[in-house]
């Protein structure tokens, strides 16, 4: 999730982030109004074409990002095959693929800081409760600490395996991982304070 933004600069990168997100919203809402698999397939084709304008690498990465959807595709296919509603099933799968692929494309072609700028603009009405800078900091911290925490969990899993015959410790890492996360959070809070706080 960290390297979501594609390093290869494409024409799509240069479009304004706000515009891309607005189009994405309209497009996704539109998908839910369409019922016919033909129209939905057309939508998916449009998204695929947009991917291809960004070059073959980008298109491949976009395709790769859709792999996580396969369990849903299997379940929907089985269920609708069983109930005999194959047309509805096809529509659901096409809609899901088109919506996720479009969202991925926007993510891949938009810098995180631009995304945060848009978010801050949209959230301005609640600025007195949640200052935009604090919101931006929170988003950045989440993205920064996903790899740190997953590395931490990896260390705990290794430490467990080094002294246990079990190959996978499973739920047993939950408590130590949660405590380690809290400990890390304390230290990060201190580092933040050392550089002027969340202000």
């Amino acid at each position: 999730m960290l390297t979501l933004t594609s390093p290869v600069e494409t024409r799509l990168h240069r479009l304004p982030a706000g515009g891309k997100l607005a189009v994405l919203c309209l497009f996704s809402a539109g998908l839910f109004l369409l019922r016919s698999p033909v129209w939905l397939a057309l939508c998916l084709a449009v998204v695929a074409l947009l991917h291809l304008t960004g070059g073959r690498d980008l298109a491949w990465r976009g395709l790769g990002a859709l792999r996580i959807l396969w369990p849903f595709v299997v379940i929907v296919t089985l269920w609708h095959g069983w109930t005999g509603a194959l047309v509805e099933g096809t529509a659901i799968i096409l809609r899901m693929l088109a919506a996720v692929a479009a969202a991925n494309l926007v993510t891949m072609t938009t810098r995180l800081s631009d995304m945060i700028d848009v978010l801050s603009r949209v959230m301005r009405p609640i600025a007195p409760v949640l200052p935009p800078r604090r919101l931006a900091l929170a988003v950045a911290l989440v993205i920064r600490f996903v790899p740190v925490l997953s590395a931490r969990v990896g260390q705990i899993v290794d430490a467990h395996r080094a002294r246990s015959p079990r190959r996978r410790p499973g739920w047993r890492v939950l408590a130590p991982a949660a405590l380690a996360a809290l400990d890390d959070a304390d230290r990060v809070a201190e580092a933040l304070r050392a550089r002027g706080g969340a202000g």
Binding site: A140, D184, R187, E190, A191
Partner: peptide, 10 residues
């Protein structure tokens, strides 16, 4: 530990 100090993704 730099991992306790670096606050940002980039």
């Amino acid at each position: 530990n730099p991992d306790h100090q670096i606050l940002f993704p980039t």
